Simulated assay, not measured.
Amino acid sequence: MLSPHALGLTPSLRRAAFSPGKARPSMQNNVMKNAIRSSTSLKPEDGTTILNKQRLQRPSRLGFCAAHVIEFVHGLPDAVKYTGKFNLALPFSFHPWNGIRHMLWDSGKFLTVKGVYSTGYAVLGATTISTLVLMFQ
């Protein structure tokens, strides 16, 4: 990446920054006009009008809406739907159960190797059950 130092512009930039009297007067006038222009306030209805004009100039959507997405998913085979549900439900099931496990560790419980393994199996069991419940709802 080209920096001002690599291009040898550092001394000239420093001179321009610390000697504002040497800057072009037309540039100073433009800066002041822009500062004044940007600080003027609008009436609420004028702001709404500008916003509505900008909304009309936005590019259109990508060509699909919620109805098309629902229709597409409805047409998928059941195996694909359940695989997708499983992939979404698993992290949402595992995270809370494992969080409870960690809170138990923070309270000083189940810190033995046997306790760690037993809570791990309990988390996996609870995750399996809650994932299946979420999948078939």
Rank of each mutant, 00 (worst) to 15 (best):
A16T: 13
R24V: 07
D46C: 02
K43T: 04
I36V: 09
R14S: 14
G21Q: 09
R15S: 13
K43W: 03
T127S: 00
K109P: 00
T10Q: 14
S19D: 12
D78S: 06
N52S: 03
R37W: 07
F110W: 07
G115A: 07
N87G: 10
N52H: 02
T49G: 02
S130C: 08
F94T: 07
Q54A: 03
E45Q: 05
P59E: 02
K43M: 05
G99D: 14
W97C: 14
Q54P: 01
D106F: 12
G47Q: 03
V116M: 12
T40D: 00
K81H: 07
D78P: 02
L62D: 06
G63Y: 05
Y121W: 09
I70S: 11
L2R: 15
E45F: 01
N52A: 04
E45M: 01
S12V: 15
A67D: 06
L13H: 00
C65Y: 02
G21R: 08
P44S: 07
S19P: 02
T112A: 08
T40H: 03
E45K: 02
P77W: 05
Y117Q: 12
P96Q: 04
C65P: 00
L13W: 00
L2H: 14
T131N: 01
V31T: 08
S3P: 01
S26A: 12
S3T: 15
P4C: 01
I50D: 03
I70N: 11
H102L: 15
A6I: 15
G99Q: 14
F92W: 11
G47L: 05
F64Y: 07
S107R: 14
M135K: 06
V31A: 11
S130E: 08
R15G: 09
P59L: 03
L132K: 06
A35V: 06
R14F: 10
S130Q: 08
G47V: 00
F92N: 12
A67H: 03
L124D: 09
P25W: 02
R24D: 13
S41V: 06
K43I: 01
T48N: 03
L104K: 14
W105S: 05
G120C: 11
L2E: 15
V69G: 03
T83C: 10
Y117H: 10
K114Q: 13
K33S: 09
F86C: 13
Y117W: 11
Y117R: 07
A35M: 10
V80P: 02
A17P: 06
F86E: 00
L2F: 15
N34W: 09
N98K: 12
K43L: 08
Y82I: 06
F64H: 04
Y82S: 04
F64I: 07
P59H: 02
F136A: 10
N29M: 11
